[in-house]
Amino acid sequence: MSPEPEDEVIICRCEEVSRKEILEAIAEGARTVNEVKMRTRAGMGLCQGKTCRRLVSRILAEQTGQPMGEIAPATFRPPVRPVPIGVLASKDDEGQSDAS
């Protein structure tokens, strides 16, 4: 089977994971978004899967014949937006923002 040009499309932009790599993970047995994530890193980057998690679900649905709604979604992890460690570590900053 020769690769289709559309398989070169990047699905996870943060980690530069192509559709081809997602298809390979599914061929190896991945059936959930988390399993695809653990094998390919799709969704592990700066945006934490905001863009790609639905795309990955859709590819899983199309490849396995399961309805979109039945594909187990990826885990959401805090903090939803990137935060500098200096800010995260500082109790005082939080107190000030509460007061202002």
């Binding site: 592990m44 980057g45 700066l46 934490q48 992890r77 805090p78 903090p79 990137p82 935060v83 500098p84 460690i85 200096g86 995260l88 570590a89 500082s90 109790k91």
Partner: peptide, 18 residues
């Protein structure tokens, strides 16, 4: 985060993603 920052001050500007 504070504990790690104590040992590696350069962490201050690095972003936590997860």
């Amino acid at each position: 985060a504070a504990r790690n920052l104590r040992f590696l001050p350069a962490l201050a500007d690095i972003h936590v993603i997860r």
